[in-house]
Amino acid sequence: MTHLVDIILSFVLLSIIFSFGSSRLQGLIKALAFQGVVVSIVPFFIGHDITEGGVLFSLTTLLIRGIAIPFYIYRFIEKVAAHRELEPIIGYNGSIFTGLLLIVAAMAVSRKFSVPSASTSLLLLPTAISLLVGGMFLLMARRKAITMILGYITMENGIYLVGTTFSVRAHHIVEFGILLDVLAGVMIMAVILQNIKLKMQSGGEDTSLNIISKE
């Protein structure tokens, strides 16, 4: 029987392929927002006991991962008026092919692990692995610093998916702390990039900054 959550997760897998093939930052951010929303609501579908605190926490996560972070980065791109082209190190077609290979490999690897509570969904572990490795791929395969942040968030989404779905142990307050750290981290990274951009505009070409900011 196909579980409802598997249908949603299959869309997440598609969104990974989409983000690998996307040549524009906006597309990537949309994929990221979608992933953020899905990983936040997955706990509702996999039969954990839902408490009031749990609902509240999931909604907060959704607000931060699905809306606040993507929106913040979207605004950031508008502000610094970055060129929308992503300057891939590995081409888009190659990236899409890598994405497909990644998902197949994640499926194959997941079968080898005996994961508690994995019986509820076939795609949970493969999706988590794909997000994690996919995030790393984006981090390495695109030249722009902003794409690195997006890759980092994708990775975090993958880790979150493993954390919330396979283990119900951590308290919400602890998970909230983790979420705040991630949010603050992303904001600080964006602020640094913004400053780099400003310095580049005011100070002309500076070789030391060219390495990270070909925007």
Binding site: A145, M155, D206, I212
Partner: peptide
């Protein structure tokens, strides 16, 4: 400019590294 680049490198490499530690904890 050099300190900016360094800060970026520091925050980014350490955050990605520490994300691995989060996975390990999970």
């Amino acid at each position: 400019p050099a300190s900016l680049e360094t800060t970026w490198k520091y925050v980014f490499i350490c955050s990605v590294g520490i994300a691995m530690a989060l996975l390990g904890s999970v």
